[in-house]
Amino acid sequence: MINTKEIERRAYLTYHKDGIIDIYLGLLIVMLSIVMLSTLFVGTEAFMMWGGMAGTFALFPIFYRESKKRYTFPRLGYVKFSEKKGRSRNSIMMLLGLGTLSALMGLWAFFLGSKGDVLWVETIITHWHWFLASLFLGLFLLFGYITDLKRLYYYGLGSFVLFASGNFVPVMGFWLVLALGGAMMTTGLILLQRFKREYPLESRARDE
């Protein structure tokens, strides 16, 4: 019989075939690595960099939406997913996830700015490989669940292996973060190229 759930799922996956979410998530992670590197040189003013990073996370939905309008809608067509079908939870959960990340960045900026002596933060700094491995794994699993995009699960697994390996390989943290962000952006760009080939621009005159 007619499987409406499958129809909706396929429409949603087609909407995300463009790789734009990979590009922007990768870009955010690359920016994170640059901030991590810059804090080595900036020193006591590092909290400003982290604060700026928190603001960038908050702007992500705007950049994402604009890219969709530029690349996806002209090729794939315009679609609105039904709020009643539960996709509204995706927008809310995504905002919650980004809001949490933004808050964590802000908290980190506050800690650096206040120069306080907080024990749990010291513990995180000491075991930062495992902390980052778990954090990225958790975030990717969450976003993968929200968006139904299986490749986010692979990013999570890859990031866990990458950061955990930092315990055994003497590599500075920002290199690992840069590698992860770079891999995601590259994947996104490849997907976007493939998407543009699969959905060439058509005359929209038929719509009017």
Binding site: K5, T14, L76, G77, Y78, V79, R206, D207
Partner: peptide, 14 residues
């Protein structure tokens, strides 16, 4: 039925 709305291009592609 499952989407709120879609344009003709999206339907044609799907």
């Amino acid at each position: 039925y499952v989407l709120d709305s879609a344009d003709a291009l999206f339907l044609k592609n799907q």
